[in-house]
Design a protein around this nucleic acid. Structure first.
Length: 471
RNA sequence: GUCCCCAUCGUCUAGUCUGGCCUAGGACACCACCCUUUCAAGGUGGCGACACGGGUUCGAAUCCCGUUGGGGACGCCA
């Protein structure tokens, strides 16, 4: 039998990291087994489903490269199918109409809670006869078995058994005929031939219900695998207050998709001591049976480390293009300045994200507004005057504005003045960038460009003079 | 409240199924040192955990029970 997995998000929000990891596991599992990965949009909640959310989810999956072999399918396009099955269940006596009002149900649950019981539908419409109440759109409830238990083998959690007594008659169709989650999912999983349902473990309790439905529909059940949830750094359910949770937000913040994927795959899964996994390696090595049962916390630090790893080995052209996007977001005009790919090559060793790379490269396009005072205090001292003037002269006369020549020029100045390279390079660095940290001095010069470099050195010289004048 | 699940360094994890090779390994973060024109990167070292209590056993991180802690589920949401 060919493996078929599915990812079935509801378009009611962003594609958050938890959903992305579930999708990744489904995708990996299907790819590994040469099966199919199906994308299904569960949009039966008209109140909360939005087009914007759907676009965001599709966009996120595309960015991560989690391509579907089939779909996206929309449940709202499949309404007749669910209706047909509801009718059959009704006809077979496996489901019944319930006329209870929401208020009535709420009162019932309150009473149960007050008695210390688990709130469940008590089946009051199960055997009702006589005329239907007027003016009420009944829901349809599944006649769940009242005895025995549902047993199944969870691919990650092992054997599981639930007493039917713990379950109740769940509604499968709302008053307006829309299928509910548990029903739509079951019908579709069967209809689409899904062999492995891999989902978050917040769905474990749905599994026995769905298995009962599958049996009532007379079909063989798929296998189930419930993966643990992803928690925030504080061990609480991951939410916006922890920072970025929507995957596209990571893209905007300058993370590479392969870094996010790598971090996600390691949350709840591992392969020995290995930390770095390419997409191909994940496919080759991943097995849902190796997934842990305990929830894991999302670690922004580790993501940052992974991102730097991937940034460092990424193609400069690609990084350059991404970097250009960052500058655009920052409102910085790159025209006439250093090439993005050069910046990428220079900065990728010293930044964890593209946003950071862009911020650190700002000086290549914009004159710094003010000197960093600590840098001035340390490096733009009177003693810096001579080296600054000497380098300016030599740089001014330089024919070739290339790293090798630039480095030689700076080194020769230091030698001529019998100074350490640092005594020359640091004042120069502050002159060029306004701060004490930047890429290697020849690269910094190259990034800034001849004209800007010379004028900034003049600015620094003026500053040193002003300072010595004061003291 | 009821039901389900989980439990190794701060975090992600190896080891748990098939007890001894574990004076518990790796990674992130953190600290120190080295390298160095700055920042990084890199190198070396350090800090740091079997939640607790009972059993079983010659022997337990590994098996059993309890406690505690955490997560999840109890909708005409998915």
């Amino acid at each position: 039998m060919n493996v078929r997995t599915r990812f079935a998000p509801s378009p009611t929000g962003l594609l958050h990291v938890g959903g992305a990891r579930t999708a990744l596991f489904c995708w990996l599992f299907a790819r590994r087994r040469g099966g199919a990965f199906v994308l299904r949009i569960e949009d039966t909640d008209r109140e909360r489903s939005t087009q914007a959310s759907m676009d965001a989810i599709l966009d996120g999956l595309r960015w991560l490269g989690l391509d579907a072999d089939e779909g996206p399918f929309f449940q709202t396009d499949r309404l007749p199918l669910y209706r047909e099955h509801v009718e059959r269940l009704l006809h077979d006596g496996k489901a019944y109409r319930c006329y209870c009002s929401r208020e009535e149900l709420e009162a019932m649950r309150d009473a149960q809670r007050a008695r210390g019981e688990k709130p469940r539908y008590d089946g009051r419409c199960r055997h009702r006869t006589g005329p239907s109440p007027a003016g009420v759109d009944p829901v349809v409830r599944f006649r769940n078995p009242t005895e025995g238990q549902v047993v199944f083998e969870d691919l990650v959690r092992g054997p599981a058994a639930f007493d039917n007594r713990e379950l109740d008659d769940l509604v499968i169709a709302r008053g307006d005929g829309m299928p509910t989650y548990n029903f739509g999912a079951v019908v579709d999983d069967l209809d689409m031939g899904i062999t492995h349902v891999i989902r978050g473990d917040d769905h474990v309790m749905n599994t026995p219900r769905q298995l009962n439905l599958v049996a009532a529909l007379g079909a063989p059940p798929p296998r189930y695998a419930h993966v643990p949830m992803i928690l925030g750094p504080d061990g609480q359910r991951l939410s916006k207050r922890h920072g970025a949770v929507g995957v596209t937000r990571f893209r905007d913040d300058g993370y590479l998709p392969e870094a996010l994927l790598n971090h996600l795959v390691r949350l709840g899964w591992s392969h020995g001591d290995r930390e770095i996994f390419s997409r191909e390696e994940m496919i080759e090595l991943f097995d849902v049976a190796d997934v842990n049962r305990a929830p894991a916390s999302f670690d922004y630090d580790k993501l940052g480390w992974l991102n730097q790893h991937y940034v460092r080995q990424a193609d400069p052209e690609r990084l350059g293009a991404l970097l250009a996007g960052q500058f655009e977001r920052m409102g910085i005009d790159m025209s006439g300045g250093a090439a993005p790919s050069l910046l990428a090559r220079v900065q990728r060793e010293r930044a964890r994200t593209l946003a950071e790379m862009a911020e650190k490269s700002r000086f290549a396009f914009e004159e710094y507004v003010e000197f960093d005072e600590r840098a001035v205090k340390k490096h733009l001292r009177p003693a810096a005057l001579e080296p600054l003037e000497a380098t300016r002269a030599r740089l001014h006369a330089l024919a070739d504005w290339e790293p090798a020549a630039l480095h030689a020029a700076v080194a020769e100045c230091a030698e001529a003045l019998s100074l350490n390279l640092g005594k020359v390079a640091q004042p120069l660095r502050v002159a060029l960038t306004g701060a004490a940290a930047s890429p290697a001095i020849e690269l910094t010069l190259q990034m800034v460009g001849r004209d800007a470099a010379l004028s900034r050195i003049d600015r620094a010289i003026a500053r040193v003079r002003e300072r010595s004048g004061q003291s």
